[in-house]
């Protein structure tokens, strides 16, 4: 049974020591993911805030960033690797940043755009300057979608960082490629399980972080929307 073999591979002490051990690969995988998401956030969040707030160039920028989604990561990694004469770290990081920018940009932009027009109008009418409006009203209200974008980006980056193994980086993609070459499914499944666990773990962490940063009033509003809906449906049935 393949999953039993995978568990055996995961628990084999041989895989837990040395430069190519599971902990090292988890660490490398994690570092690349954090670097990529952080780098992408530094680009995409300010950009998303700016175009969302000013409404300038939004359609164009979000559209072209969506075109980035079509860029095959494997192609980009191999391209950058050859162009940079084999500098693995930078080529992989750039490719992963490119992968993470579109969801974060889209989340940030949509978050700002989604803020109730009445709320923004009221903020303006009460005498907030442009930057006060952005930091005190638009950004807090955009946080649910912004965090959603970050979570999407993280999931994609964690799954795709395995491709980095192809250009020789010791991420969790290594056991996938090694196992594939020698048809050792235990290793492939073991590696996949580790990547999945990492993805789930990071997603949970981000979900928790979201709970901490998203203002309570917005979480209550989301709950109310969920709760009210079935009631409305029931009422309609009664009337009809």
């Amino acid at each position: 049974m393949i999953f039993a073999d995978a568990i055996a591979w995961l628990l084999d002490p041989v895989n837990w020591s040395g430069a190519k051990s599971i902990p090292v690969r988890v660490g490398v995988h994690l570092l690349y993911c954090l670097g990529a998401v952080l780098g992408a956030s530094l680009i995409a969040v300010p950009l998303g805030l700016y175009i969302g707030h000013t409404g300038r160039g939004g359609v164009l920028l979000v559209g072209s960033s969506n075109a980035l989604r079509a860029l095959p990561t494997l192609g980009l990694v191999t391209f950058l690797y050859l162009v940079m004469n084999g500098v693995q770290t930078v080529s992989v990081l750039i490719a992963l940043v490119v992968l993470a920018v579109p969801p974060i940009l889209a989340g940030t932009y949509a978050g700002i755009q989604d803020v109730d027009r009445g709320v923004v109008d009221a903020a303006r009418g009460m005498g907030m300057t442009g930057s006060q409006r952005l930091w005190r009203v638009e950004l807090p209200n955009a946080l649910p979608l912004l965090v959603g974008g970050l979570r999407n980006a993280t999931l994609q980056v964690v799954a795709t960082a395995s491709v980095a193994a192809y250009v020789g980086i010791e991420t969790l993609g290594r056991p996938l490629l090694d196992g594939l070459r020698v048809l050792d499914y235990a290793q492939v499944v073991g590696g996949a399980v580790l990547i999945a666990l990492l993805a789930v773990g990071l997603d949970l962490l981000l979900a928790l972080a979201g709970k901490l940063v998203i203002p309570r009033g917005l979480r209550l509003a989301a709950e109310t929307r969920r709760r009210v809906k079935p009631v409305e449906e029931a009422e309609v049935v009664d009337v009809v």
Binding site: A122, M126, G127, P140, N141, L218
Partner: peptide, 23 residues
């Protein structure tokens, strides 16, 4: 200056436009 002008003029809109993230 618009922000300064508006601080001295009360403004109420339809649907109230209350800030959902603040008490």
């Amino acid at each position: 200056d618009p922000p300064k002008l508006r601080l001295g003029i009360g403004y109420v809109i339809q649907q109230a436009g209350l800030f959902p993230h603040r008490t």
